[in-house]
Design a binder for these strands. Sequence first.
DNA 1: CTTGTTGGGTAGTGGCACTATCTATGTTAG
DNA 2: CTAACATAGATAGTGCCACTACCCAACAAG
Lengths: 205, 205
Amino acid sequence: MRISELSRRSEVPIATIKYYLREGLLAPGRPVTATQAEYGETHLRRLRLVRALIGVRGLSVSETRAVLGAVAEHRAERHQVLGLVMGARPVDEDEEPAPVPAAAEVDALIAELGWEVSEHAPARAALGATLESLRSLGEPVDRESLLRYADLAGRIAAVDLDRIAGTADPLEQAERALVLTVMMEPVLLALRRLAQENESAKRNA
Amino acid sequence: MRISELSRRSEVPIATIKYYLREGLLAPGRPVTATQAEYGETHLRRLRLVRALIGVRGLSVSETRAVLGAVAEHRAERHQVLGLVMGARPVDEDEEPAPVPAAAEVDALIAELGWEVSEHAPARAALGATLESLRSLGEPVDRESLLRYADLAGRIAAVDLDRIAGTADPLEQAERALVLTVMMEPVLLALRRLAQENESAKRNA
DNA sequence: CTTGTTGGGTAGTGGCACTATCTATGTTAG
DNA sequence: CTAACATAGATAGTGCCACTACCCAACAAG
């Protein structure tokens, strides 16, 4: 398939496809002549994935590139791959650890839960920063609520892992993990909104 | 307090505060003279909230304005207030309902759960759109998984409502609901990442 | 041979979130 | 009283980002 067909089938303008090629979000097609390249179904799949990450989930182009790059080298641990979308960079060597706000609170929480989480998981910093921000807004998250949320997060993760389980190929598994983790986020947040409204209606009945 | 103190205490540049004033994210101070205005603690609180919504949660200025505006008129239903951050507009009168992708699936889900959710809740559209997107990526969410997620979302909502419960004043309650719903989202997503890593480690042990 | 498409490159666009500057007006310290 | 400084309000500018438009030489198809 040539670029125009790729454009038609994906509903992405040619100029934008070229932009993604330049940005390294999409592998170049197999060159047939000097002015012709052949694209396959993988390109189409990847293009749709890129569009979903950027358009639906709202990732930036550079975040998307980082995430996809990490998936490509599936030697990266899953938590690291997925951590990238939490706004973290891939273990920048020698660089100040950056003063994570509520790091101690996060460490304590993870210890209390008995969770096995690597020391430099980006989600730790993201969690700490947000807890700190909530505190400064005068709405600190009390320990009990946090534990209840964490317990429920654990159950969600169990469902997530059940869904990923059935895949053998490591690369495919990494891509599935990416889609199921990142793209499920809007789903989970929307479900929470719906549930809140229902719960509110129930209680005020 | 004058604008420079507001700036110092909030760590927001004066130029940015003026910008927020222009954009209607922050109420003007009480004018003392033609070139002087008095700001209070409410302004400081509001300014910090704005910064958190924009900086931590990543809302745009216009989304932030819409959300804060809706909270101000607490006559708006809570689901509507909170729905705004799902990328929806406040019930634009006469306008095509816009073809929601998987509306039928969402309706069926809500019916099956027995949830009481208003017909035009923005989260419905957001959920439908994301489910549709996942399907087009070749990763449809099967009914059983969706039900498991929904059940867990329900329990999260119960914790949320428990936390909001202790407030009497309707305006304050609306603002609390806003903070607790919107600002808790990064917390929940981070907890999920941590839980995923733990769950993954557990299963591969 | 003519008409159209492609790859590749460069430059331009529009939106957004600030940021800098200017002016007329005030305030304050000495 | 005056000189140094701060403020409100307005306007213009900046930097980044995600495209988008255009151009050209090289092909392809009828």
